[in-house]
Design a protein around this nucleic acid. Structure first.
Length: 734
DNA sequence: TGAGACGCTGTTTTT
DNA sequence: CAGCGTCTCA
C-alpha cells in the first residue's frame, strides 16, 4: 500500500497544473478513482478526500479517452460542480476539456427546455421558487373559498410543505397526512382539491416548481425511450456527490441516466445526511447496490482534514447516534489543541466573544478566508453581523434570506417574467396588484380575461378598466410593450422596468425605500452580466444570490478577503482552519420543535457536519439565555449535544462552562433569570392512554410506548409525534 | 372593492 | 416580528 506525502497534506495541490499521478491518492481513493466497468458506491467519511477522489476520477476518465462532455457530474450546489470541474480540467492541463456539471435541478432545467415538449411544456416555462409556489396555493385557496368558514385551515406554508413532501418521498398525500400531519386529517379532501388545482394551474401557465423539474425529467425519461437514449448516449459516465442527501426521485434519475451503460459512481456519507426535509433518507445510500447489483463498495476512512483532537470530539458526537454508522475515522495529524468550549451570558456576549477571537486570529496572521462561523438557522448570526461590522471585519453570509426573496425584487423580476413567458399568471397577478386601486378581485377579473387570449398583453391593454385605474394600466402596458423591442439586452429591459416601477416603489415602501433601493442597484449589477433573458430568469430561482453585497463581488470574479458566516446546510462540503459553531443552546440547536426521535437524530448529524468542517481549531459557543422573538428571555443553556459529551474532549474558556454544570453558577452583578430545569418524566407512570403536557405541542395522549427512548403521543393541534424521552420535556397530567 | 387598522399565531434547513 | 385573517370606512 503506497502512502504518498501529497495525500497527507490538507491543502489541495491538485488545483495547480502539476498534472496527476497515482501517488497523490491512497489505496482506497485510487481504487475509487480508477475502477472501470462496475457501478461504484464510495462511502466517504468527513475529510477523507472525497472531492479529490471525484476530481481524479474525472481526470482519469478523460485520460482513458472519455470525452469530457460525455461525463456528467451531479453535485449539491452549482458552485461545488464548478469548482470540481475546474480542478479536473487543471489536472489534465486542458481547460478546454470541461465536464458537464451542476445540480440535479439545473440539469433537469436544461434537459426539459429541450425535451419538455413531450410532456406538453413550451421551452420558455418559468421556474417557481418557494414563495411563488405559496402564492399560487394562496390564489387557489381563495378561489376555492377554503380560507374562511371559521375553521383554521393550514397556512400556505404548511400546505406547500405537505405537498412537496409527498412528491419528494413518492408517497400519496394521504400517507403523508397520516404519517406527519395527522392533525390535518379532516382537511384531506380539501387538500387533495388544492393539489389538483395547483398541478393544473402550473401546467396550464407554463410553470414548474423545484419538484416538477425532477419529476418531469424522470417522467420524460421513463415515457420516451428515444429521449432516454439520447441522454444516456450523451452522458456515458455519471458521478454523483453527496448521495446521502438525494431523494427517491433523484435516485431514479441517476438510475435512468446510467441505464444501459451502468457507468455510475456515487459518493456519500450516511452520517452526514441532513436533508430529510427534502425527502432524503440516509438509508437510501444503502439501497444503491440493490439498484445496481454489481456495485463495488469502497470506503474512505482516513481523515486528512482535522487534527486528532478535533476528530476525537467528532467521533464522540456521532457515537451518540442511535443508529450506528459504518465507519470510524482516524487521522495522521497528531495532537492539536482541543476544541474550545465557551459559555456566554446571552447572545450579545457570545457575539462579542466570537468577534474578539476573530480579531485576535487576524492579529496572528490567520487569513480571514480561513475562518468561518456556523449556525443552525439564518437568523442566529444577526448579533454577530453587527459586532463584525463594528470592527470592520468583512464577511459573506451564506444561507438565510436570498436577495430574490424580498418583495421589491420580486416585483421588478415579475415584469421581466411576463415578457419571457406571457402565460405566467402568477407574475401578471403580482404586476396588476401593484397598480393603485386594483385589488385581488379586479386582478382576478383581468386574469380571467387573458386566460384564453392569444396575446395576454393585448388582452390586458384592451381590458375595460375602471376610471380610477385606467391611466395606471395604460402606463403599464406601454412599458411592457417597450420591453418587447427585439434585441433588447436584459439590463436594458431592467432599466425600463425600473423607470416605470420607481413611482410604485416609493409609494408602497415610503418608509424604507432607501435601503431597498440598494438591493435594486445590486440586482442591476447582476442582470448586467446576462445576455439572455431566459438564463437570467433561471438563475434567479435556481441559483439565487445571497442578500449580502459581498456575494456579488464573488460572482463577478474578484472574491475579496473575507470570512464566511454560514448556516450548516450551506457549509456542506467546505472546510476552514478555524471554525466557530455558535448558539449551541437548547432551543437554538437543536431547534425548539424537534423532540421527535428522527429529527433529533438529524440535528445531531448536523452538529457532526458542522464540527467536521474544522482543520486546526474548533470553537463551540453557547449563550446561557436566549431571547425568543417576542423579547422574552428563555432558558437557553448548553445544548444537550454538548452536555452528553465527556468534558475531557474540550478546553474550557470559562470554568462555569464545563459540561458537568448544566446551568452554571450565577455570576455577580447580573440578575439571574430562573432557568427552567428539565424535569424528567416519571417513566414508570407513563403508560398508554396517559395524558401528558409538552411545552410546544400542548396536551396529548400517549398512544404507544416505542422502545426505551421513545413514545408516541397524539396532540390535538399537532398530530401524532414520536418523542425522544431523554430530551422531550414531557410532564404527566393527572 | 380597495386600503388601512387591528389582533392572533406560528416559528428551520435548500434547490 | 411578519404574515395571516377580519373589520371598518371611503
Amino acid at each position: 500500500m503506497q502512502q504518498s506525502l501529497f495525500a497527507s497534506e490538507n491543502k489541495d495541490q491538485v488545483a495547480g497544473s502539476e498534472g496527476f499521478s497515482r501517488g497523490d491518492l491512497n489505496a482506497a481513493q485510487l481504487e475509487a478513482a480508477t475502477s472501470m466497468g462496475v457501478p461504484l458506491l464510495v462511502i466517504a467519511g468527513a475529510g477523507t478526500g472525497k472531492t479529490r477522489t471525484l476530481v481524479y476520477r474525472m481526470a482519469y476518465l478523460i485520460e482513458q479517452g472519455v470525452a469530457a462532455e460525455n461525463i456528467l457530474l451531479l453535485t449539491f450546489t452549482r458552485k461545488a460542480a464548478q469548482e470540481m470541474t475546474e480542478r479536473a480540467a487543471a489536472l489534465i492541463r486542458d481547460p478546454g476539456q470541461r465536464v458537464t456539471g451542476g445540480t440535479f435541478h439545473s440539469m433537469a432545467n436544461i434537459l426539459l427546455r429541450k425535451y419538455g415538449h413531450h410532456l406538453g411544456y413550451a421551452p420558455n416555462f418559468t421556474i417557481l421558487d418557494r414563495s411563488d409556489s405559496e402564492g399560487i396555493i394562496n390564489l387557489i385557496k381563495s378561489s376555492l373559498e377554503l380560507g374562511g368558514s371559521g375553521k383554521r385551515f393550514p397556512s400556505k406554508r404548511v400546505v406547500c410543505n405537505l405537498l412537496s413532501r409527498s412528491v419528494n418521498k413518492c408517497s400519496s398525500v394521504e400517507a403523508v397526512i397520516e404519517d406527519q400531519y395527522s392533525h390535518l386529517h379532516e382537511y384531506h379532501a380539501e387538500l387533495e382539491r388544492i393539489f389538483d388545482h395547483y398541478r393544473k394551474f402550473k401546467f396550464e401557465h407554463g410553470l414548474m416548481d423545484y419538484d416538477d423539474l425532477l419529476v418531469n425529467l424522470r417522467q420524460v425519461m421513463t415515457e420516451e425511450p428515444q429521449v432516454r437514449e439520447e441522454i444516456t448516449g450523451r452522458f456515458k459516465h455519471v458521478l454523483v456527490d453527496e448521495y446521502q442527501d438525494t431523494n427517491p426521485i433523484q435516485a431514479d434519475i441517476v438510475r435512468l441516466v446510467a441505464s444501459g451503460h451502468n457507468n455510475v459512481m456515487v459518493v456519500g456519507d450516511d452520517s452526514q445526511s441532513i436533508y430529510s426535509f427534502r425527502g432524503a433518507d440516509f438509508r437510501n445510500i444503502m439501497d444503491f447496490p440493490k439498484v445496481f447489483p454489481e456495485t463495488k463498495v469502497v470506503r474512505l476512512e482516513e481523515n486528512y482534514r482535522s487534527t486528532q483532537a478535533i476528530l476525537a470530539l467528532t467521533n464522540a458526537i456521532i457515537d451518540k447516534a442511535e443508529e450506528k454508522f459504518t465507519k470510524k475515522l482516524f487521522s495522521n495529524i497528531e495532537g492539536g489543541p482541543k476544541p474550545l468550549l465557551q459559555g456566554s451570558w446571552d447572545e450579545s456576549a457570545q457575539a462579542r466573544w466570537v468577534a474578539e477571537r476573530i480579531v485576535e486570529l487576524q492579529g496572528r496572521d490567520v487569513p480571514l478566508t480561513e475562518i468561518a462561523v456556523l449556525f443552525r438557522s439564518g437568523f442566529h448570526s444577526y448579533k454577530l453581523e453587527l459586532e463584525l461590522t463594528n470592527r470592520h471585519v468583512v464577511f459573506e453570509k451564506r444561507g438565510g434570506l436570498k436577495l430574490t426573496e424580498s418583495a421589491h425584487i420580486k416585483d421588478v423580476l415579475a415584469y421581466l417574467r411576463v415578457t419571457n413567458n406571457p402565460e405566467d399568471h402568477l407574475s401578471w397577478n403580482r404586476i396588476l396588484l401593484l397598480l393603485e386601486k386594483v385589488g385581488p378581485k379586479t386582478a382576478r377579473n383581468v386574469l380571467e380575461r387573458i386566460r384564453s387570449a392569444e396575446d395576454p398583453l393585448l388582452a390586458v391593454s384592451e381590458f375595460p378598466a375602471g376610471k380610477s385605474w385606467q391611466t395606471g394600466l395604460k402606463k403599464l402596458v406601454e412599458m411592457l410593450i417597450s420591453l418587447r423591442a427585439p434585441g433588447l439586452k436584459p439590463v436594458a429591459m431592467f432599466d425600463l422596468a425600473i423607470e416605470y416601477y420607481r413611482e410604485i416603489f416609493e409609494r408602497i415602501y415610503h418608509d424604507d425605500y432607501p435601503t431597498r433601493s440598494r438591493d435594486l442597484d445590486q440586482l442591476r449589477q447582476l442582470v448586467s452580466g446576462y445576455v439572455d433573458l431566459q438564463s437570467l430568469m433561471d438563475d434567479t430561482t435556481l441559483d439565487p444570490p445571497e442578500a449580502t453585497d459581498e456575494s456579488l463581488g464573488g460572482r463577478l470574479g474578484m472574491p475579496p478577503e473575507q470570512m464566511i458566516l454560514s448556516t450548516i446546510h450551506s457549509a456542506k462540503g467546505l472546510e476552514w482552519d478555524h471554525v466557530f459553531v455558535i448558539n449551541l443552546a437548547t432551543g437554538r440547536f437543536p431547534t425548539c420543535q424537534p423532540f421527535m426521535t428522527q429529527e433529533w437524530e438529524e440535528e445531531r448529524r448536523m452538529f457532526y457536519v458542522a464540527a467536521t468542517r474544522a482543520r486546526q481549531r474548533l470553537y463551540l459557543s453557547y449563550p446561557r439565555e436566549v431571547m425568543s422573538f417576542d423579547r422574552q428571555a428563555q432558558a437557553g443553556g448548553m445544548s444537550p449535544f454538548l452536555a452528553e459529551l465527556s468534558p475531557v474532549l474540550f478546553d474550557s474558556g470559562d470554568r462555569s462552562a464545563a459540561p458537568i454544570q448544566r446551568n452554571g453558577p450565577s455570576l455577580p452583578g447580573r440578575p439571574r433569570t430562573p432557568v427552567v430545569t428539565r424535569r424528567a418524566p416519571d417513566i414508570s407512570r407513563l403508560t398508554e392512554g396517559a395524558t401528558v403536557r409538552h411545552p410546544f405541542f400542548g396536551e396529548g395522549k400517549v398512544e404507544k410506548m416505542a422502545g426505551n427512548h421513545s413514545v408516541e403521543v397524539f396532540f390535538a393541534r399537532h398530530g401524532r409525534k414520536t418523542l425522544h424521552l431523554d430530551y422531550a420535556k414531557l410532564e404527566l397530567v393527572d
